[in-house]
Amino acid sequence: MSFADIAALTIHDVKNRLAHLAGLAEGRGDTETLRTALEASEALTHLLAFYKSENGILNLVVNDHSPSDLLVELANDTKGLRAILVDVDHGQAPTLWFYDEVLVRMVLSNAVQNAFRYARERIVISAIEQDECLEFSVHDDGAGYPDSVLVDSGASAAVTRDGTGLGLRLAKRIAEMHKNQDRCGDTRLYNDNGAVFKLILPK
């Protein structure tokens, strides 16, 4: 058995334990422990996805999905766990789009986690069709990204202790895996009264 196999099995086991822990915490209304267990588990999901993308075995399964549904789900996932509100703006979202929902959910959920760290009062998540592409945005009202991160949409951002760099790199890879005809997806980071993370997916 290789180290990678053992690591994969261990991650699986740890995730089961975290799921159990999350269940116990939720059962007794312990929000802080629940949130920590969910975040720890999400970090492991990222690690595994990153490993797979490094080895070319991260598969994309593109199907038709409703961007609005995904946004509502992301906002609901944080309900009761955080003091800061997540507002959903899906008024201009297209009814349907084609993407890998699991991977896109993972990317956006990570962007929302990051936003929580810097937001002062609120986070807005939205989806809009722009130039034949779907643009998901996560917008917080914090201090914005430092210049070092803005350089290339975080693709070469250092992996910090909180895993920010890893999340951004993975986001870019997953965006780029979404291709249709000659176009492929991308991520964009900029500041506009706070930090804006964009995930752009071609039609």
Partner: peptide, 29 residues
Amino acid sequence: TAETGYESVVTAAECLPDDYLLKPFTAES
């Protein structure tokens, strides 16, 4: 399921589940 890798199992499967959930998740999710 505990991992994201499941989707490749799913596409390769004969019969698709209606959906799948990555654990852990909250009652709200």
